[in-house]
Design a protein around this nucleic acid. Structure first.
Lengths: 247, 247
DNA sequence: AGCCATTCAATCGTATACAATCGACTTGAC
DNA sequence: GTCAAGTCGATTGTATACGATTGAATGGCT
């Protein structure tokens, strides 16, 4: 992976370490204990938005936030820019930055795309999973079952994430895994609401079982179909939820 | 607990932008005479990276770029951050920003995902396209044919983009369209190389015709399959290209 | 009274300045 | 001759300051 695809090798300068140790990278995670203020602020704001501390439509005042975190406006601005890139926040040129109020239509669209990516990951995983990956997948499924038996919604929510993570890891496409994680994160706040539905957790668990069965049987199309339905139903459920709250 | 859904207008202040005007995020075309320097610099750098002015692995010196554009380091920094978010550039904590040298494996992965998204867009477009959208699609196809007849690679490259844009617009899923555009942009530099292959342009045109036929016939699965192949072959071709250059 | 122009205030985007961090080089000892 | 530690330089990341643009309010005019 170190060898880059040199589209223009002739232009490489002699004394430049252009080909030298390009960092392994690609682990987009907030690595290590570096004291990057911007990143930390971004994470905090992300969490606060997800938990509802900042309701939709609220303006994120750079100065106020800077004061709250005891930093200057610069890292706050950078953090907000990252949120804008992530789609959680919208900037209006000289008005301010606002928490995006995602409409139902957009959410359904996002679930549609999420379903496609998850289904793709499942299809690939069915062909490419190895013994270790299968082991992790089964472990995650067992953990989901345990949480479901105890009717522990929060625990199930957490284990559910682990379960899908296991599929991402097994799909053998790191880029796909990254994109899926991005979307997963963005839909986090809405996923959580799903489990409040009466039998949603048990139904979800049953779907998980069928997904694992398909993957371990090497049934790509089957895993694809199961996962697509598994995600799409969440979008539909969410539409139902909104519909019941609307009037 | 407030959800991010706009079901709670009570918290909305005076003139909140609860609308869904998605400004395509990366629009900011040069049409407007606004003096947003950061966006312009981002576009320029993007183009320069795509055209090979900045080879893979090259360091993007903020000060040098700032001097080159006659601005301060701040907008340059912001532009680079946007490129990092887009995945074209990578920051190393205290080393600098480098043009990402994407390995062949990652490129193939990206083409895989791109194929899936394009195929999805085609499938949806086959069901949802309206008369105006069909008109635009046909216009784009005719433009592609004209460019191919003249063996004008650059023109075909441009019209090809328009063609795929037409599909995105017709898919009826703005979020999907945005994601597809993002990936399309990221693969821009590599797509361009495809057309250098002897008969690639004619083959591409033939695929375009079949895609349009499937979409206009309302054949969702057909359009999906055609588009998936249309994109995947590019990944394979690229792998061939690299293989021939490797030794 | 209603509409329009001007003024005003607020906020963003950019410029400049400073400090912390990391790598590379030099220098010295073993 | 090799290795290690210290210093230096370079670059990022952050702080502060300034100008420009925009929305809103106020006052005058029709």
């Amino acid at each position: 992976m170190d060898s880059a695809i040199d589209t223009a090798p002739s232009t490489l300068k002699a004394g430049e370490p252009a080909d030298r140790s390009l960092p392994a990278a690609s682990s987009a995670g907030p690595a290590g204990g570096v004291k990057r203020k911007a990143g930390d602020i971004r994470d905090r704001l992300e969490q606060e938005i997800a938990t509802g501390t900042h309701p939709a439509g609220e303006r994120l005042d750079e100065q106020v936030i800077a004061a709250r975190f005891g930093v200057s406006r610069t890292p706050v601005r950078e953090a907000i820019n990252q949120l804008v890139a992530g789609g959680l926040v919208e900037r209006i040129p000289n008005r301010g930055a606002f928490v995006r109020a995602m409409g139902l239509a957009e959410l359904v669209e996002m679930f549609e795309v999420m379903a496609e990516l998850e289904a793709m990951a499942g299809r690939l995983a069915a062909r490419r999973i190895d013994a270790a990956g299968a082991k992790r997948l089964e472990t995650a499924l067992v953990a989901c079952e345990a949480a479901a038996d105890r009717e522990a919604h929060d625990a199930y929510y957490y284990e559910n994430e682990r379960f899908h993570e296991a599929i991402y890891d097994a799909c053998g496409n790191a880029f796909l895994a990254g994109e899926a994680r991005r979307l997963h994160l963005r839909l986090k706040a809405f996923r959580r609401l799903q489990l409040r539905f009466p039998h949603r957790m048990r139904q979800s668990l049953a779907e998980h079982r069928r997904i694992v069965a398909a993957i371990e049987a090497g049934d790509g199309p089957g895993a694809e179909a199961e996962l697509k339905g598994h995600i799409l139903v969440q979008g539909e459920r969410f539409a139902d939820l909104v519909a019941t709250l609307k009037p």
